[in-house]
């Protein structure tokens, strides 16, 4: 475990807590894409299949449980909570996220490190996570006013994988045979998808104005 990876995991944890805080305290999911939350629940469900078979560390298992539990409970809140679901903007959250799953699954069936069920599902989760933010970014461009918590959520979610890139560089130079091209490329693509959001996020922060993405 290196500082970049720990920082990445803590940033990821913070993004999830910010979103749970928003939904649980102000009972609103305005500006939050249910599609992205569903994709993330699927990402964790397919990535952590080894939670019972491969014990890495207490930290690893606890974090997996937190990400699984939080992503599924956020989906439940938005879909079923009698107050929260009223603030869900289903007319704006129209990204056809099924169209993201199919190519990711096909790609995982052809490009993976080992052709086993768990490994293909793990690879699928990497490809899916890379594009999972798209429904949320599309929704942000449609909803004019982005509230602070949603903006912070997306920022932290994008930053965590960016920190992981430093972690991969660090591990590449410190551990022999640490080469995971698929993870690296998926991680870079994922982070690049946030590039324009990061730009407007910093602009709004620098000029101390409300975050607004161009239509």
């Amino acid at each position: 475990m290196n500082i970049f990876r720990l920082a990445g995991d803590m940033t990821h944890l913070a993004s999830v807590l910010v979103l749970l805080l928003k939904i649980h305290t102000i009972k609103s999911c305005a500006g939050v894409s249910l599609k992205t939350q569903e994709l993330y629940a699927l990402v964790f469900a397919t990535r952590y299949l080894d939670i019972v078979t491969d014990f890495i560390s207490v930290y690893n298992t606890v974090m997996k449980l937190i990400f699984l539990g939080s992503s599924f409970s956020i989906v439940w809140y938005i879909r079923h909570h009698r107050v929260v679901r009223r603030s869900y903007d289903k007319d704006q959250d129209t990204f056809r996220h099924y169209l993201l799953m199919i190519p990711c699954m096909l790609l995982a069936l052809f490009v993976h490190e080992k052709f086993t069920f768990k490994e293909v599902m793990w690879t699928f989760s990497l490809y899916l996570e890379a594009v999972a933010i798209l429904p949320q970014l599309v929704l942000l461009q449609r909803t004019r006013n982005i509230d602070n918590l949603t903006g912070q959520y997306v920022f932290l979610l994008g930053a965590y994988r960016g920190l992981y890139i430093f972690n991969w560089i660090y591990r590449y130079f410190t551990e022999p045979h640490f080469v995971h091209w698929i993870t690296w490329i998926a991680g870079v693509v994922q982070t690049l998808l946030y590039a324009d959001f990061f730009y407007y996020y910093f602009e709004s922060w620098k000029n101390n104005v409300r975050l607004q993405l161009p239509a």
């Binding site: 974090m63 490994e119 972690n167």
Partner: peptide, 10 residues
């Protein structure tokens, strides 16, 4: 090599 692919990252 027979090492099972262990994914130690989240």
């Amino acid at each position: 090599e027979g090492t099972t692919l262990k994914h130690d990252e989240l």
